[in-house]
Amino acid sequence: MTTRVHTRSPAEITLIGLAVVLSALILVVPIALIFAYALREGVGVYFANILERTTLHAIGLTVLTAVIVVPINIVIGICVAWLATRFRFRGRQLVITVIELPAAVSPIVAGVVYLFLYGGQGLLGPVLQGMGIQLMFTVTAIILVSLFVTAPFVARELIPLMQQQGTEDEEAALSLGANGWQMFRFVTLPNIRWAIVYGAVLTNARVMGEFGAVSVVSGSIRGQTNTLPLQISQLFNDFNVTGAFAASSTLALIAVVTLILKSTLESRGWQ
């Protein structure tokens, strides 16, 4: 054991080498390829591709969806985590199971269940249509299905953390005369803020990148209900590979930022 510090055994060198080479081939090369292909016709073409009308619209729609979905699922995540870790009640386990469900459901199935709720053939669709409300193939449908898909992310970071932290701090604050809001603002929130940021980062990455569920409910109307992943798929099907990679580079950049934030947050050691 102690010798390992100074000299590496042949087994160790082999394993590290294998892991590094495989990871380079499987994880590093793909990222390099995105930027290489996006820029292969020059920087001018790259920006022209990004600024193309429908791609720009897709970027806008993707950002809009994230701006709406991420805050809602942060609030809900905190709510469910507070409920599930601070009280014992009948049905507590059920609440945890239900919020975990979307993580186990295939993206296509997520889209299909929304279709059967709000679609023309669905449970509420005909009623809504009678009232003149069309939800399917609109931006609202994209937002609803994104809320479904990312519902678990913040809650699943907060529940284990708050469980482990216990309730002593909060009870102390109350006994010192704090009201509920003060207790939450000055005791709970500082304890869980990094877990919230972490959950939000993961939620954002998934919202911006969701493909399967959104492709079922959006109708993929170019310049109207195309999010970035759908736009990438359409550009690729039009044989505009450079354009597809230019659009992908924006999402790849967000992925890289996500990894950096995640790594930084983990080294802060809140886990």
């Binding site: 994880l27 793909p30 995105i34 993206p107 993961l202 990455a205 911006m208 990148g209 969701e210 493909f211 399967g212 970035l228 992943p229 759908l230 990438i232 798929s233 992908s248 999402l251 790849a252 967000i254 992925a255 890289v256 996500t258 990894l259 995640k262």
Partner: peptide, 8 residues
């Protein structure tokens, strides 16, 4: 693989 959108 979790951070990168599946379409990409």
């Amino acid at each position: 693989p979790f951070a990168l959108p599946t379409a990409v």
